[in-house]
Amino acid sequence: ERVRARYDYEAQNEDELSFKKGDIITVLEKDDGWWKGRNGKEGLFPSNYVEELE
């Protein structure tokens, strides 16, 4: 599954994923509120910062 970033997100910890608004992220795992994904790097990000691609 792929999602698009709705906002910029700056990683707060080294296991998190940074991205810019409009970036496409491949979702690897979904957990409550935090998803694991890849966009060149791999890490956790808040699920409310992304939207599913149509």
Rank of each mutant, 00 (worst) to 15 (best):
G40R: 07
Y7R: 14
K41V: 10
E51M: 10
W35S: 05
E1T: 13
W35E: 02
Q12A: 10
L28P: 00
K21C: 09
V27G: 02
E42T: 14
D31F: 15
L44Y: 15
T26G: 04
F45G: 02
E29M: 12
P46K: 06
T26F: 11
V3P: 01
Y7A: 11
F19V: 00
R38D: 12
E1F: 14
A5E: 05
Y49W: 08
D23H: 04
Q12E: 10
L44Q: 08
G43D: 01
K30Y: 08
L17D: 01
Q12V: 09
P46M: 08
W34L: 09
N39T: 12
L17A: 02
N13A: 10
S18E: 04
V3E: 05
N48H: 14
V50C: 05
K36L: 15
E54D: 13
W34C: 09
D31S: 15
S18M: 00
E29L: 12
Y9C: 05
V3S: 02
K30T: 06
F45R: 03
N39V: 11
E14D: 14
R2H: 12
S18Q: 04
D15I: 09
E52W: 10
D15R: 14
V27H: 00
E54F: 13
R6K: 15
V3R: 06
E16V: 03
F19R: 00
S47G: 10
D23Y: 03
K20M: 08
L17Y: 02
R2M: 14
D15M: 14
W34Q: 05
K30D: 03
E29V: 11
L17E: 00
Y9F: 06
E51H: 07
D15Y: 15
E16W: 03
A11H: 01
L28Q: 04
W34N: 04
E29T: 11
R38H: 13
R4K: 12
E14K: 11
G33E: 12
S18C: 06
I24S: 04
S47Q: 09
N39M: 13
P46N: 06
E51D: 08
D15E: 11
N39A: 11
D32P: 07
D31N: 15
L44M: 14
F19A: 01
G33Q: 12
W34E: 03
G40V: 11
F45A: 00
K21A: 13
G40M: 08
D32V: 12
G43L: 02
E52F: 12
V27I: 12
Y7T: 07
K21T: 09
Q12F: 07
N48M: 12
G37S: 00
E29I: 13
L17G: 00
K20S: 10
E51K: 04
N13I: 01
I24Y: 10
V3W: 15
K30F: 06
V27W: 03
E29W: 15
K36N: 05
L44F: 15
V3L: 06
I24G: 02
E51Y: 08
R2W: 13
I25Q: 02
D15N: 15
Y49H: 09
G22E: 03
R2I: 13
T26M: 11
E10Q: 13
K30H: 04
W35Y: 08
D8G: 07
T26H: 10
I24M: 08
R4Y: 07
A11N: 03
E10I: 11
R6C: 13
E29Y: 14
G22S: 05
L28N: 03
L17T: 01
V50M: 06
E1S: 10
P46F: 04
D23G: 02
G43Q: 01
G37E: 04
I25L: 09
V27F: 04
G22M: 04
S18D: 06
K21S: 08
G22H: 05
D15F: 15
Y9D: 00
Y7K: 14
W35K: 00
L53I: 14
K30G: 00
S18T: 11
G40I: 12
W35A: 03
D8A: 06
D8M: 02
K41S: 12
G40D: 12
K30M: 06
Y7V: 08
W34D: 01
K36T: 08
R2N: 11
N13K: 13
D15Q: 13
E54V: 13
N48Y: 13
L53T: 08
G43H: 00
D15T: 14
E14I: 12
V50N: 01
V3I: 04
K30R: 11
E51N: 08
D8V: 00
A5Q: 02
D15H: 15
E52V: 13
N48S: 14
R4N: 06
G40N: 09
K41D: 08
A5H: 01
G22T: 03
T26D: 09
K30I: 05
R4W: 09
G22P: 01
D23I: 04
Y9V: 02
A5S: 02
K30P: 01
K21F: 05
E54N: 13
Y49M: 12
W34Y: 10
K20N: 08
E42D: 10
D32K: 13
S47A: 14
E54H: 12
W34V: 08
R6G: 05
G33A: 11
G40H: 12
Y9R: 05
F19G: 02
V27L: 09
Y7N: 08
K41A: 11
S47N: 07
G43A: 02
E54Q: 13
T26A: 08
N13T: 11
D32Q: 12
A11G: 10
E54Y: 12
E54M: 12
Y49G: 04
L44A: 07
R6I: 15
F45M: 01
Y9W: 06
D23L: 01
W35T: 06
K36W: 13
P46V: 01
E10M: 11
N39S: 09
E51W: 07
S47D: 06
G37I: 00
E51V: 09
E52C: 11
V3Y: 14
E10H: 12
T26I: 15
L44D: 04
E14Y: 09
K21M: 10
E14G: 11
G33T: 12
F19L: 07
Q12R: 13
N39H: 14
Y7Q: 11
E14L: 09
F45H: 00
D32N: 15
I25W: 00
P46H: 06
K21L: 07
W35L: 05
R6E: 06
K41I: 07
P46T: 02
E16N: 03
E10W: 12
D8L: 01
Y49C: 11
L28A: 04
E52S: 14
I24F: 07
D15P: 01
D8P: 08
S47F: 09
A5K: 02
R38W: 15
E52Y: 12
V50R: 04
I25T: 00
D32C: 12
D23W: 07
W34I: 08
N39C: 12
P46I: 03
E51I: 09
W35D: 02
G33D: 12
F45P: 01
V50F: 05
E14S: 11
E29K: 12
Q12K: 14
Q12H: 10
D8I: 00
L28Y: 10
V27Q: 03
E10T: 14
S18N: 07
T26N: 07
Y49N: 04
N39Y: 12
E1G: 10
R38L: 09
V50A: 07
N39D: 05
Y7D: 10
A11Y: 01
G22L: 04
D31Q: 15
W34K: 06
I25M: 04
A11T: 04
N13S: 13
G40Q: 10
E29S: 15
E51C: 08
N39Q: 07
K21H: 06
Q12M: 11
F19Q: 03
G43K: 00
F45W: 01
E42M: 10
P46Q: 07
E16R: 03
K41H: 10
N48T: 13
V27E: 00
G37F: 00
V50S: 04
A11W: 01
